[in-house]
Design a protein around this nucleic acid. Structure first.
Length: 265
DNA sequence: ATGTCCACAACATGTGGA
């Protein structure tokens, strides 16, 4: 089977609310593999028919009201795994949220992840966020080396340049040294940040709050990331943010990140 | 002046999360 040449990640903020926009987007962009986050529906409710009609196979891992991740692939979807083996759980270890699903798609191990938000530094949700990152690192490490990409809403801005104003984040999550350290720990495994082009403005933001005209003013954050292993990175020919998908009525508050890959061999 | 959007419980509008 041929490998994927266009892979994408998109926090859709409810796959049911987003289905019309998502189907339009799949037709327009025609990605081979898509990682979805915040699907907000259980697996039985996932709107499979529309995406299957476009030629995609679906691996969903959802739970109902919150969270939820999924993979769409038209280059095969094998060895699907849901969750993380050492998931810390929240609020107690027995409660495991639907935040990770992985599969092998056309020879590439693809992860769709929705990292916990953390609420605020010092909150128990913040400790959960860091523990969840540790569990992700351990699960990914077990699958390396090899072509692999961890894609999704990491809820961390890698650098101060990845938020609209660092001063607005002085007592906030998403920018703290421990959170950025969790990204560094993934890079220490051999993964690298595939930084997309912004298409408009200089900074490749992927998320803009719905409130206060943040998108219009381009006050955003780059928190949707693609962390790829070396065999994938060497194939990257382009990466870009589809801000068109963030415009207008019925948009998610996140824009998709699209990565173009050269053909294998 | 916490601005919007989403799901849920419940059937009006409040709540929690982002």
């Amino acid at each position: 089977m041929l490998g994927p040449v266009r892979i994408a990640t998109w926090n859709v903020n409810s796959v049911l609310a987003r289905e019309p926009r998502m189907l339009e987007w799949l037709e327009r962009v025609a990605p081979d593999v898509v990682c979805l986050q915040e699907t907000k529906c259980d697996d039985a409710a996932f709107p499979r028919a529309g995406v299957e009609a476009l030629g995609y196979e679906v691996a969903a891992h959802g739970e109902g009201r919150w969270n939820g991740v999924a993979l769409l692939s038209r280059v095969g979807i094998d060895d699907v795994r849901r969750g993380l083996p050492s998931d810390p759980g929240f609020p107690t270890p027995d409660v495991r949220e639907a935040r990770a699903v992985s599969a092998t798609c056309g020879g590439v191990r693809v992860w769709s992840v929705y990292v916990p938000n953390g609420r605020e530094p010092g909150h128990e949700h913040y400790a959960y966020k860091l523990a969840w990152f540790d569990a992700l690192r351990d699960a990914v490490a077990a699958e390396l080396p090899g072509p692999l990409a961890v894609m999704g809403d990491f809820n961390v801005a890698p650098t101060d340049a990845d938020v609209w104003d660092p001063k607005a984040f002085t007592h906030s999550t998403h920018v703290t040294p421990p959170e950025r350290g969790a990204l560094a720990a993934l890079r220490d495994l051999g993964l690298g940040d595939v930084v997309p082009r912004a298409l408009k403005y200089d900074i490749p933001f992927t998320y803009w709050d719905y409130r206060a005209g943040m998108f219009h003013k381009n006050l955003g954050m780059r928190i949707d990331l693609v962390y790829a292993s070396e065999p994938v990175r060497t194939r990257v020919t382009d990466a870009w943010i589809d801000r068109e998908a963030r415009k207008g009525k019925g948009a998610s508050d996140h824009a998709p990140v699209v990565v173009e890959l050269s053909d294998e061999s």
